[in-house]
Computed example of a mutant assay.
Amino acid sequence: MIGRAAILALIPHQGAMCLWDEVLAWDAGTIRLRAHSHRDPAHPLRAADGRLHAVHLCEYGAQALAVHGGLRAQAGGGVARPGLLVALRGVELQVACLDDLPDALEGTAEVLVDSEAGWQYAFRIQHAGTLLASGRAAVMPQRQP
């Protein structure tokens, strides 16, 4: 298992904006993670009314991609190229809010396309074995100045 400190070293999201707490398993094509951050009353994505809306599960999915990219690059002796989330497709949300979910969130991401032009992944976020969100995300590498 890979903990939060190692995740923070891999991705640009720092502090409370790093949403994942643990990597449970990963290989070249997939990653499985766990998070408890949705229960934090100070979660940075909470709305003014204090609610954490399900649309933010897309950010959990996108960060799963970033963690996976970081781990893949690290395993190859390098660091991940910075990327920009450019598209979400086929997103399906099964809940409205995450506020009343008592257990950890678990996420999975699977590489669909890996090329010099960018990456596409499918992601799924679950709670206690129940699917909360799924979709696909596309990331393009940032141009270096």
Rank of each mutant, 00 (worst) to 15 (best):
V113Y: 08
L112V: 15
D100R: 09
L112W: 10
D100Q: 10
G76A: 14
V86F: 08
Q94C: 14
Q120K: 13
V113T: 15
G83D: 07
L85S: 01
R81T: 13
R72T: 03
G129F: 10
A75V: 04
C97H: 06
G107C: 07
E116M: 13
L101V: 05
L132M: 05
L101I: 10
A128G: 08
T130A: 15
V95H: 06
D103E: 08
E106F: 10
T130D: 08
L98T: 04
G107V: 03
A73H: 00
Q126G: 13
T130L: 12
D99I: 11
A87F: 05
L93V: 00
A87C: 12
I125R: 04
L85H: 02
G90E: 15
L105H: 00
E92I: 13
L131R: 07
A75N: 05
S115F: 00
G90Q: 12
E110F: 03
T108Q: 09
Q74R: 15
A73T: 01
D99N: 08
F123P: 01
Q74F: 08
A117I: 06
D103N: 10
L112M: 14
Q126F: 12
D114A: 14
P82M: 11
L98P: 00
G78S: 03
L84S: 08
A75I: 03
V95W: 02
V95I: 12
A96I: 06
V79E: 07
T108V: 12
Q126P: 02
V95C: 07
Q120E: 12
G83M: 04
V91G: 02
R89G: 13
V113I: 14
R81V: 14
G129P: 02
G118T: 02
E110V: 15
A80I: 12
R124Q: 13
G83P: 02
D114Q: 11
A80P: 01
G78R: 02
G118A: 08
R124A: 13
Y121N: 09
L84W: 03
L93S: 01
V111S: 13
A87T: 11
R81W: 02
F123C: 07
G77T: 10
V79W: 01
D114C: 14
L93G: 00
R81A: 13
G83I: 06
L101C: 07
T130C: 09
V113S: 06
E92H: 11
A104R: 04
R124D: 08
V86D: 07
R124W: 12
L105F: 00
